[in-house]
């Protein structure tokens, strides 16, 4: 394909079909850099969907990547459940004290009403306006936390592990509530204009849970949840490892998987071949101190290891570029994929 005549949407769909488009697609999963682009503090930026629309459009024009990221921040879902969001000047908003303070609270947890929750409405408004701007030329990636991973923010990691191991009934109830919310939230984003949903599920990674535990929990939850989402999904492990469960992830019905920089993307790509598209796996934390040359070398390495045959999208390994990553590094990544990612690769 000719690079200039191909839209990002065509490029991404081709690679998802495990064929080679004109070049390796590039997902710059940047949220906070949008605030930099429009010159606003992070909290102010996310207070108005118009800012996010402007930020995403400026990022798209500047870095010539292949998606719009309508994601605001992970704790937006915690806010929907009545929890606290803590904003900082130099990083992603964080969740505050857990909304589930004691395990007994799980019984009383209500499913948030997506259409009448202001923080979620802002995301939907931004998604709708972004769709008006890019139409079908650029995929818009919406985001949900998986029902299986959301409890880390709802109740804290430690108490969630205790729940998983010791209180299966309450665990099952929490999954039901979270699944109902996740499906409604994903489908609302798709209805607003999102092309696909990124299903963040780091707790399912083998960094966090064993495969045995995953098969009994996160795998089942993902299969049930993704089946009810009215559009394509990509599962993201947010830096967690997934090689030992690649076949299982493919069995949940997802189309792609976000891969950790702690895994060899060549091995992951081989395991995914024909089943899942790999997304990754640049190290976002290290990226903060990369030179332009480092950036180019890392991009070349990912493309060399995973680019052949399509089924590969260049991105960071976490699903969110840290605020501290300099613009010239992002620019170097973009330049490198435009230079070295053209098919045929040799």
């Amino acid at each position: 394909m000719n690079q200039t005549s191909v839209t990002s949407m065509q490029r991404v769909l081709t690679t998802l079909g495990h064929r080679e488009p004109d070049r390796v697609p590039f997902f710059l999963l940047a949220t906070l850099h949008g605030a930099k682009e429009v010159g606003l503090p992070i909290k102010t930026y996310f207070s108005d969907p118009a800012n996010v629309v402007e930020g995403q459009m400026r990022l798209l024009a500047k870095y010539r990547h292949d998606c719009i990221y309508s994601f605001f921040y992970a704790p937006v879902e915690i806010a929907a459940f009545g929890g606290e969001v803590i904003f900082t000047d130099d990083g992603p908003p964080n969740s505050g004290e857990p909304v589930i303070k004691k395990t007994g609270d799980i019984k009383n947890l209500a499913v948030p009403d997506v259409k009448n929750t202001p923080c979620l409405e802002k995301v939907l408004t931004a998604t709708h306006r972004l769709k008006e701007r890019v139409k079908d030329t650029v995929p818009i990636i919406g985001v949900v936390m998986s029902p299986f991973s959301l409890p880390v923010m709802q109740m804290g990691f430690d108490r969630y592990f205790d729940l998983m191991y010791d209180k299966p009934d309450l665990f099952a109830h929490l999954m039901q509530v979270n699944q109902a919310f996740c499906v409604e939230w994903a489908n609302a984003q798709l209805a607003a204009g999102a092309t696909a949903i990124c299903y963040f599920d780091p707790v399912s990674s083998t960094t966090i849970t064993t495969r045995d535990m995953y098969l009994k929990t996160g795998f089942t939850v993902a299969g049930q949840t993704l089946a009810k989402i009215n559009g394509p999904t990509a599962t993201h492990m947010a830096s967690g490892r997934c090689l030992p469960i690649i076949d299982d992830i493919a069995g949940t019905g997802t189309a792609a998987v976000g891969v950790s920089c702690h895994e060899d993307i060549a091995l992951v790509k081989n395991a995914c071949r024909g089943k899942l598209t790999v997304i990754g796996n640049l190290n976002g934390i290290e990226m903060c101190r990369w030179s332009s040359e480092d950036a180019e070398n890392h991009v070349k390495a990912v493309i060399a290891k995973a680019g052949a045959g399509g089924g590969c999208i260049l991105s960071d390994n976490h699903g969110e570029i840290p605020f501290q990553v300099p613009d010239d590094v992002l620019m170097a990544i973009s330049e490198a994929v435009h230079t070295w990612g053209r098919y045929p690769l040799d």
Partner: peptide, 8 residues
Amino acid sequence: AGTFALSQ
């Protein structure tokens, strides 16, 4: 090394 999980 990736052989055990954080839960363990």
